[in-house]
């Protein structure tokens, strides 16, 4: 479904993403890990059209999507959350999600109807009339996830949505992700908490200094000497 070939992005002299090949299939959960500054967020920005790529190609079901703008990619069906969350602070929780739903809804009331069910599913219904600015960071991240899901995408990229959650809350999120995947959606999940990412992902991709150094099952990746070196060499993840 999503395919990257030789994707490269530099900022001045720094190559943040270097010749990355990547594939995500429908209904697949792919974990994206790597030390701080490895280029995970930059790769997210490239896939979702927030940054233009320097080289390579990105296709969604065969259609090129690189350098077409973020709104285009979102309408095509790839949405993301932001590592530093970007909820619509002055809108209510329900409105935040409705804005997401609007992209596929025929009318505003229809978007709100859809938003109602999504908000409930994400366990935000008790706060639905609350302004996003009054939520905790963790709830706002959940809200962003809900807003992304409300767009009825093919694929969701989660950039560290679980940081700061309690183990119970993480379990809740993971269950939700599993349920959503069973609807045929794919996930690319960036997360520093190893147990979480290893547990939920069917496949793990490891970036180091912009380059992909491993791509395989969680077990294979965990035992890969290059990966161990990348992490231990830098003193571990987070």
């Amino acid at each position: 479904m999503l395919q990257l070939k030789g994707v490269t992005k530099s900022f001045g002299g720094l190559t943040a993403v270097n010749q990355v090949d990547l594939e995500v299939r429908p209904g697949e959960i792919v974990g994206l890990i790597g030390p701080n500054g490895a280029g995970k967020t930059t790769l997210t920005n490239l896939i979702t059209g927030f940054l233009p790529i320097d080289q390579g190609e990105i296709t969604l079901n065969g259609e090129p999507i690189a350098n077409r703008g973020a709104d285009f990619v979102a309408r095509k069906g790839i949405v993301r959350t932001f590592q530093i969350e970007r909820s619509f602070k002055d809108l209510t929780v329900l409105e935040n999600v409705a804005v997401g739903a609007l992209v596929r809804a025929d009318s505003v009331p229809e978007a709100f109807k859809k938003a109602k069910t999504v908000v409930k599913r994400f366990g935000l219904d008790r706060q639905e009339e609350e302004l996003a600015r009054n939520l905790t960071i963790q709830s706002r991240k959940a809200l962003e996830f809900a807003r992304a899901y409300a767009t009825q995408p093919k694929m969701i990229i989660l950039d560290e949505v679980m940081a700061g959650l309690t183990p119970g809350e993480i379990d809740g999120q993971l269950t939700l992700i599993q349920e959503i995947v069973s609807e045929g959606l794919s996930f690319l999940i960036i997360e520093h908490i190893m147990q979480v990412i290893m547990g939920v992902s069917q496949r793990i991709v490891v970036l180091e200094e912009g380059a992909k150094i491993a791509d395989g099952t969680p077990q294979a990746v965990a035992n890969d000497p290059k990966v161990i070196e990348a992490y231990l060499g830098r003193g571990g993840g987070d």
Binding site: F50, V79, S87, F88, D90, V99, V108
Partner: peptide, 23 residues
């Protein structure tokens, strides 16, 4: 109360986030 109104509300709050949901 229109689609445009909600799109503008999103844009006013955060242009990147607005784009990220297809606006």
């Amino acid at each position: 109360r229109s689609r445009l109104g909600f799109q503008l509300a999103a844009i006013r709050n955060d242009e990147d986030a607005a784009e990220s949901v297809g606006i």
